[in-house]
């Protein structure tokens, strides 16, 4: 399986993501922001960082990068896409996911390891997890405070589209939401960084559970 990782100017988790893809047993494919296609990727990770310096709003400029056109098409056709941190913000700006990520309510950069609960195993990025399973994942963000209007929020809850929920909310996000998926469930955005806990040499490989999920989906 080929897993693409997009690289925008200012992305800073792309190397970690590429390394994690190797560790999960897939072939990492670097996707430059100016690429016109996804180089045969079977799944795509939009990594964290500060694409385009977070100018205007996090993700607002990256959303119009050239590689986003084939990525949006891939997502609409049901291809598995995972946005992590800034990648989550990019996918919201691109309207591939509902809602927006606002500044943390306490106005401080949130940098910690937090406990999250997997709320649904019915996405390509959580298929290898159990519903209700708890994971400890790192967070590192200034705008991770998930917001959606009341109607959208109710739909997300009713349709089981909250993917990860914080057990200790680090940023003030609504309903303690740490990750959501789109209606078709193939596009997932999460604020915590599974790729940063994918190598036991660095203390934990719990994040691999999320990343490896996509391999299981590929055989179905």
């Amino acid at each position: 399986m080929r897993v693409g990782v997009t690289v925008f100017p200012g992305s800073n988790c792309d190397r970690d993501a590429l390394h994690a893809v190797k560790l999960m047993g897939a072939e990492p494919v670097e996707l430059w922001h100016a690429d016109a296609d996804l180089k045969g990727s079977d799944a795509v990770i939009v990594p964290g960082g500060f694409s385009y310096g977070d100018y205007l709003r996090p993700g607002a400029i990256a959303r119009f990068a050239k590689v986003m056109a084939p990525l949006e098409e891939f997502a609409r056709e049901g291809g598995p896409v995972l946005g992590v941190c800034n990648g989550f913000q990019v996918l919201c700006e691109a309207h591939l996911l509902p809602g927006a990520l606002l500044q943390n309510t306490h106005l401080r950069f949130a940098c910690d390891r937090v406990r999250v609960r997997v709320e649904t195993a019915d996405t390509p990025w959580t298929a290898a997890c159990e519903r209700g399973e708890e994971l400890v994942l790192p967070v590192a963000h200034n705008e991770g405070n998930y917001f959606a209007d009341a109607e959208t929020l109710a739909r997300l809850e009713d349709e089981g589209r909250v993917v990860l929920r914080y057990l200790e909310n680090p940023n003030g996000s609504m309903n303690d939401i740490a990750g959501v998926c789109n209606e078709a469930r193939n596009v997932v955005g999460v604020m915590p960084h599974p790729e940063r806990v994918s190598d036991s040499a660095l203390g934990s490989d719990e994040g691999l559970k999320i990343l490896r999920s996509v391999l299981a989906g590929a055989t179905v």
Partner: peptide
């Protein structure tokens, strides 16, 4: 489309 995010 760009300058404002109408969601928020």
């Amino acid at each position: 489309r760009l300058l404002a995010n109408p969601t928020v």
